[in-house]
Design a binder for these strands. Sequence first.
DNA 1: ATTAATAGAAAAATCGATATTTTAAGTGTT
DNA 2: AACACTTAAAATATCGATTTTTCTATTAAT
Lengths: 244, 244
Amino acid sequence: MKEPQSNRSENEQTKHPATDDTQDRGGAESMTNRAYTQLRADIISGVLVPGRKLKIEELRKLYNVGTSPIREALSLLTSELFVERLDQRGFRVANISLKEFDELLKTRYWLEERALRESIANGDKHWEEQVLLAAYRLSRIPRSEAADHFASNGEWEEQHKLFHMTLLSACGSSILLKLCELLYDQNVRYRQLSGVIAYPTRDINAEHGAITDAILARNADLATELLIEHYTLTGDVLKEQLVH
Amino acid sequence: MKEPQSNRSENEQTKHPATDDTQDRGGAESMTNRAYTQLRADIISGVLVPGRKLKIEELRKLYNVGTSPIREALSLLTSELFVERLDQRGFRVANISLKEFDELLKTRYWLEERALRESIANGDKHWEEQVLLAAYRLSRIPRSEAADHFASNGEWEEQHKLFHMTLLSACGSSILLKLCELLYDQNVRYRQLSGVIAYPTRDINAEHGAITDAILARNADLATELLIEHYTLTGDVLKEQLVH
DNA sequence: ATTAATAGAAAAATCGATATTTTAAGTGTT
DNA sequence: AACACTTAAAATATCGATTTTTCTATTAAT
């Protein structure tokens, strides 16, 4: 009934409605959300490199919004550890380091092991089915968008995260789940930034399958062992890249 | 005597005690920081009750700042779980519930147990001394500001948090430490809101002392058991209050 | 009586302009 | 040449006004 959003069609490359949005309200998205989503994506993908100064004016023009939405989006990303705020001196993309990656990996082990063990102990039939389903769906999506060279596949990324979060979803603490998600996203950023092409010697689907099997068999020790190994393998490749 | 309580440290764990500001800029604090600190304090203390609508205009006048700092502060508090953002419908103080408190408590067990065990395994002599020192300092501060009735003592709160964070500080992951801090703060809010007067039958100093002793003896099993019991006791009193 | 429609009020989101602070460059002095 | 001081430029932080959206109360319709 009101004037249709004039600038709606601009920059609509990120089509999928990201992660959250508890309530779907007919496509009306706030500028802050748009800026947030795009900034986040650009930081994770590495378009905005670590340490880069994030000048308000620059971003304002880049994303076609005013200063307020930009600053709000940056504030949100600050607590998510993607952006650093320097009092009175603006924002910058969070730095990365081998040391921090080690900590990140270690912390993920600790949190995800706990979450997985709790899930296996408490998860019901419905959870089991969701795990199975998530594993299946993931297995049907190609890791790379192109066959001859590696090109990050957004669909795969999405489903991969969903798979791993589903494993933990019955842990009985939505707070822990949120923290695991936070760390997962941090890890994705490291993975993207390190430019890990592929894992030539690995069969990731097989790894996911083995984890799924162990879970369905309610073998907590094996499942956690496999999950941690899964992360360790990726982590090692990643660390290799980071030192160079 | 407001600690900026910065959650935006430049990923440096070299947190020298007592030295607040990296650079003392003559008391010049940004409006955003001021709003953030005050809002945070008012939410934790219960001045702003759970679920309360946070109208921008109202806060603007209350804290004597413009809309931008208010919105930025609210955005920061959103990721800290103190404030909820409803897309296009503003902000409100995060709700509390018995269910969420249970989750919070459970998650704290998991994270702090891990952090404490790692600290005991890896902590050096310097860490031991800091634990001892923190325990001593805490024991010298009265729990209540008044002798005849209970009145929350800010100094005690500060040192109590410092004590518990010191226990975990040698865990080897600044990320985990940050998460524990986040959950600790959430817990403080619940404690304040439930209006827990005191713990008549408890000797909290003795509990802290026992934990300290177990740590200095490098008895990880005993230390974690005591720590969790410490939290459980408070948690039970708290839950009792929450249902009423 | 219940639902639907709608106008008016309230609040949120956003913008563009202004004020403040920081950064960078230049200038002169020891 | 090194150091402090001054000044110009850039960038941040902040404000107040405007635009959009949501909320609420009232009226109309089934």
